[in-house]
């Protein structure tokens, strides 16, 4: 696995395409290094999540139909975002006449780290990343896709991102005080509840800072964009990288 037979469609969230091409490049290169055959369908657009979370799921029918058409023929669809994947799986409106394709898509779309651990069955990645790393567990990946155990639940602890990173040479994994508290991004929440959003972001950053985190990473650039925006405004020297960037750098 994979033997040049399995075709992966790369789904790059729209704001990543626009603002963080290096994250998309890292995702592509990482998958290629791991032997995958990846294609980025050029016609892709936004998945519709910002609209749906703002209360306009009904207005995302065309977007969703387009999304299914674009990605339906791949064996897997992989995205460097838990949030967008969760939207496609759970909140995209049902498209009449495409129920079969939609159900298949539900089962074959994956967030990057879960694709690596669950489909490619990668135990840990060999490479080096000599930095002190704090992980931000974005909520939609965390409690929506169950990419790591929830602090609320009585379950055996696990964390797919940690599993991939923790054995990288030189990497220091930081345990945070509140390991899965929301950063306050929340899509439209970031602007409709600006004061709270900022405070939540500051509190998350403080947790990382108090633990001398050098690089803050995570699986969703939306949360990182929010945290980085606050950090930069306040002259906070902490660095930010998507987990795809860390993994891709580590094995190069």
């Amino acid at each position: 696995m994979p033997e040049n037979k399995i075709k992966i469609g790369l789904f790059i969230p729209c704001y990543v395409d626009q603002f963080y091409p290096k994250v998309a490049i890292a995702t592509l290169e990482l998958l290629e290094k791991l032997g995958c055959q990846v294609k980025y369908p050029m016609g892709q657009t936004c998945c519709g999540q910002p609209m749906a979370n703002a209360g306009y799921e009904r207005d995302t029918i065309a977007t969703t139909r387009h999304f299914i058409r674009i990605f339906k023929d791949f064996d897997y669809v992989v995205a460097p975002s838990g949030s967008c994947v969760l939207h496609v799986k759970e909140h995209a409106p049902v498209i009449a006449g495409m129920e079969k394709e939609q159900a298949e898509l539900h089962d074959k779309i994956f967030e990057l780290t879960e694709f690596l651990t669950d489909i490619l069955k990668i135990g840990n990645i060999k490479g080096s990343f000599p930095h002190r790393v704090g992980f931000h567990a974005s909520c939609h990946g965390q409690r929506g896709l169950r990419l790591s155990s929830s602090s609320e639940l009585h379950q055996t602890p696990f964390n797919k991102a940690k599993q991939l990173m923790v054995n990288l040479e030189g990497l220091e994994w930081v345990e945070l005080e509140r390991k899965d508290e929301c950063c306050g991004f929340g899509g439209t929440f970031a602007v409709s509840e600006e004061a709270l959003s900022i405070q939540m972001g500051k509190d998350r950053l403080a947790d990382h800072q108090e633990h001398q985190v050098e690089i803050l990473t995570g699986g969703d650039m939306s949360c990182i964009m929010h945290l980085q925006g606050i950090a930069k405004r306040n002259g906070n020297p902490i660095q930010f990288k998507h987990i795809a960037e860390i993994l891709n750098e580590a094995i190069s």
């Binding site: 790059i12 990543v16 395409d17 626009q18 603002f19 963080y20 091409p21 290096k22 998309a24 490049i25 592509l28 980025y40 050029m42 970031a190 602007v191 600006e194 900022i198 972001g201 964009m225 929010h226 980085q228 925006g229 606050i230 930069k232 405004r233």
Partner: peptide, 25 residues
């Protein structure tokens, strides 16, 4: 711009991923 009141906007890259992909793949 409510986003930008207390947050910096991301730095703008030279090109989108889409543009990069066209050139590099």
């Amino acid at each position: 711009n409510t986003w930008g009141k207390q947050r910096d906007l991301p730095e703008l890259p030279k090109e989108s991923f889409k543009d990069w992909y066209k050139k590099n793949r």
